[in-house]
């Protein structure tokens, strides 16, 4: 009696194991459709191309299923990216560089590869005009940033270093920065659009510097894909790039409609969106020189430690996929 129970249970377990094995090997079900996982940042207008593609149903037109994941800043997004939780991401150049540098040594990481340009410029330093009237007044002031290692953090750190300024950075959630500014907790902040424009209209902040002033024409956000996804599904990557480029074209040919979509996404008034748009450029080509400059600056600032200054060119070559992105 007991023996038969043992025998039956062994048979059951083996059978279950076999079914599970076949299932996982794809023998029992048709190859499941790939759902691409796309990361983006909270309220970031730099990712307008993504929102256009969603609103205009481009993904469906290309037969791509997708899931969206939102993060509070680029570095946080990249923490999830490198361990394989995302396939694509709209993210600032510096966090993508940091993530690639940190993961280069290992096969286990999912390294970002640039396959598209999100936008150029698009960040601004807004300050309290009663306290800070000129660059020199920035000394010893509390300046909010969206977090260590974000493009805004790198921009302001580089700027401070080049101009011998001492700035106390107050890292925080980007969506909290206008609020903290409004209550006088910080003397100003650098953030991605539309947050600087929000502070201008809500709290009478004034724009001291745009990122154009800090680094003209700099690459800001990029569209990255993980190296492993690119190797496994090049055809899907092709389609996503086409979707992205179509969306960028749409923004540049239909600015009025693009702004309307931006207003719908952010629920912000037209004047804020208008001001934010005046700081952003949506370009299909990537500014490789500025990416190289970011990398050099980040090595100098100590943000990236495991890339030597004379490895910069080979690093950039691996980082940007020239098949998709004209240099």
């Amino acid at each position: 009696m007991k023996k038969s129970i043992i025998v039956i249970s062994i048979i059951l377990i083996v059978a279950l194991g076999a079914v599970a094995g076949m299932y996982s090997a794809g023998l029992l079900s048709p190859a499941p459709k790939v759902k691409v996982r796309i990361g983006y940042l909270t309220g970031d207008l730099h990712h307008l191309a993504l929102h256009i593609a969603i609103t205009k149903n481009y993904f469906a037109q290309y037969g791509i299923e997708y899931e969206l994941y939102e993060y509070i800043n680029g570095p946080t997004l990249m923490q999830h990216f490198v361990v394989g939780e995302l396939d694509f991401a709209y993210v600032g150049t510096p966090p993508a560089l940091t993530a690639r540098a940190s993961g280069l040594a290992s096969n286990a990481t999912y390294l970002p590869i640039v396959i598209g340009s999100g936008n150029l410029e698009g960040s601004a330093l807004v300050v309290n005009p009663n306290i800070i009237r000129s660059i020199i007044d920035l000394n010893n002031k509390k300046i909010g940033t969206p977090g260590t290692g974000t493009i805004q953090d790198v921009l302001i750190s580089t700027y401070a270093k080049n101009n011998n300024l001492t700035i106390t950075k107050y890292p925080g959630r980007v969506s909290d920065l206008p609020l903290q500014y409004g209550r006088g907790e910080i003397d100003g902040f650098i953030g991605w659009e539309p947050y600087p424009s929000i502070a201008v209209y809500q709290s009478n902040a004034s724009i001291l510097l745009t990122s154009h002033d800090i680094m003209p024409n700099h690459q800001c956000c990029v569209l990255v894909v993980s190296d492993k996804f690119l190797a496994a599904h090049p055809e899907i990557v092709d389609k996503v790039i086409q979707i992205h480029r179509t969306a960028i074209d749409f923004i540049n040919t239909n600015p009025a409609q693009a702004k309307e979509i931006a207003m719908n996404v952010t629920k912000l008034p037209a004047q804020v969106i208008e001001l934010a748009f005046s700081h952003m450029y949506f370009s299909k080509s990537v500014n490789v020189d500025s990416i190289r400059e970011f990398l050099v600056n980040m090595i100098r600032l100590g943000i990236i430690k495991n890339v030597d200054i004379n490895q910069v060119d080979s690093f950039i070559n691996g980082f940007i996929n020239t098949k998709y992105v004209a240099g």
């Binding site: 570095p75 990249m78 923490q79 909010g144 950075k169 890292p171 903290q180």
Partner: peptide, 21 residues
């Protein structure tokens, strides 16, 4: 970790988590 002053052990952890160190 939520934000504000750049000092404090929670902030230190978040800074370096962001830098993936």
């Amino acid at each position: 970790m939520i934000g504000g002053e750049p000092v404090g052990l929670g902030r230190l952890i978040l800074k370096y988590a962001n830098l993936l160190q």
